[in-house]
Design a binder for these strands. Structure first.
Lengths: 159, 159
DNA sequence: CGTGAAACCAACATCTA
DNA sequence: TAGATGTTGGTTTCACG
């Protein structure tokens, strides 16, 4: 699967605005609409473009608080890891979960309505879990930058 | 701005699949297509639905590595904070940046092609910045869960 | 329910490695 | 020759009023 420069150009736009029309993309990437269409189909079929999602303003919803949690497990056995991963995936309030090197084993990004709601979440995730040694919580005061957009250019010189 | 249960239903679906058709949404939310359309327009106009983006497979791009970084500043003065925030926003490889309570001041989520690329990023972000006291890096071994979708239900009982 | 826009798909000529 | 591109046209789906 190779991605050429035109593909990168398309992906860059779509990562910011998935509603861009084929003609928009054609203009931006200096390709014909037909070519753009073929490329998009290929990128979707190959799973490079995985899905399209709507970004919803969190403040309007009731999930006003965000948390970063560092989790340390008692034992790092693969079955224990998988158990924890599944628990994280099952929990809607866990937005993101990363298995990492370093002092912590997992980094979680969670949302909650309020402190009480968050406390119940920690109960479900940690206190009911024998294998969690400790966890450290940081409350998010400012979501300075939020996004999943990835720089698609191999290096700065190619732009 | 109040969001009723039907709105929550719509948002819930759109957060996962922004390509759902109006008829799909109408069926899922037990509303008429016309009503869905009006609600969507209102949600978009009010900025509740901010934008639609494509999720791109990171592995296909060259940003194969992810990092979680805890940053501690020397002094927490507002102008220093703003300076750091701007630097994070300017840097495309910084996907997410949170200003948090606790032992660290900022939590960053970054991507890089390789270790060398990452090292250059840390140089730009930290070594050139007088105000950064220390930073701790965790390498992401497994992106167990990645998403921005937020549970839109005020509490579990309403589902 | 009608209209228009845009996505989708197929066919064909062209160009190049 | 094989692969990608541009052009065109026809069909269908869907958003919008």
């Amino acid at each position: 699967m190779d991605i050429d420069e035109s593909d990168r150009h398309l992906l860059e736009v779509l990562q910011e605005d998935a509603n861009a029309t084929i003609n928009d993309l054609a203009f931006a990437s200096h390709l014909s609409p037909a070519s753009v269409q073929r490329r998009l189909k290929r990128l979707r079929d190959k799973g490079v473009i995985q899905r399209q999602v709507a970004i919803v303003d969190q403040n309007v919803l009731d999930q006003k608080m965000s948390f970063v949690i560092l989790v340390e497990l008692e034992r790092e056995r693969t079955d224990q890891l998988d158990t924890f991963k599944r628990a994280a995936q099952r929990e809607p309030q866990v937005q993101q979960c990363y298995y990492v090197t370093g002092e912590a084993d997992f980094v979680l990004l969670c949302v909650a309505r309020d402190m009480d709601d968050f406390e119940q979440l920690t109960r479900r995730l940690f206190f009911d879990n024998e294998n969690v040694r400790r966890f450290r919580t940081s409350v998010v005061m400012d979501r300075t930058k939020v996004g999943l957009a990835v720089p698609v250019w191999p290096d700065d010189t190619e732009r």
